[in-house]
Design a protein around this nucleic acid. Sequence first.
DNA 1: GGACTATATGAGCATATCGTTATATAGTTG
DNA 2: CAACTATATAACGATATGCTCATATAGTCC
Lengths: 121, 121
Amino acid sequence: MNAMKSSAGPHQPLSGLAAGLVAARFRILGEPIRIRILEELSGGERNVSELVEPVGSTQPNVSKHLRILQEAGLVGRRQEGNSVFYSITDPSVFTLCDAVCRSVGERMVRDAKLADELRRR
Amino acid sequence: MNAMKSSAGPHQPLSGLAAGLVAARFRILGEPIRIRILEELSGGERNVSELVEPVGSTQPNVSKHLRILQEAGLVGRRQEGNSVFYSITDPSVFTLCDAVCRSVGERMVRDAKLADELRRR
DNA sequence: GGACTATATGAGCATATCGTTATATAGTTG
DNA sequence: CAACTATATAACGATATGCTCATATAGTCC
């Protein structure tokens, strides 16, 4: 029973401290370039140079964001010779991304319908 | 099959545009006070004044954040006489919060263990 | 209408964060 | 060691975002 429901258990309230920690994690994900980096890493380990072009930024910038992601514990770092390879350590981020994607999508559809309805008058 | 697993389907990559939208949603959630507000609203509809104290901020500030949450489509607004009641429109946010909470918690445990191990030497 | 309450908004300041450019660090190779 | 490559960092300016205080708006009640 309760098969496809997205909410598993009852939600338990967050203390003020916890709210801060949760917000901090969300903030890490609140940057397009970091989402892009995570997406790219979902295809497996990549070194910095391999990320620069698909992510569409500069090397220093990508490097900085990778550091942020690493400090947040979302990606791991492995040095091999001259290169540094990053990889996803916490695949749950994709669950988050998917959920947000769905939610945002639904909202856009809802808004579109509303706009359409208004336009019709 | 595949009952309790948090990741349901395969993750599909986000376009650059989608990454921006997803990041924007995450950014909305990247503020402690907004998390607190959502938490409070998880207990049901509240008007602005009822939120000020538990959230620990000022009325104008709470009002502003409520506006942001509303524009993001996360809360709904209902005016009744002199008061304005806000409520959760998209309960999936709590799924997100719980997931993040779990992930952050796991990370803290991991870090604590590591620190402990290092300290032991 | 006038007083009162609830909510929203605007101005101003403080701070955080992003992106860029230049440069430092570190590994490799001849 | 010198040249080269890959990554990281520092300094800077630009922008965004949050918070506070004062005030505007709007509803209620007498």
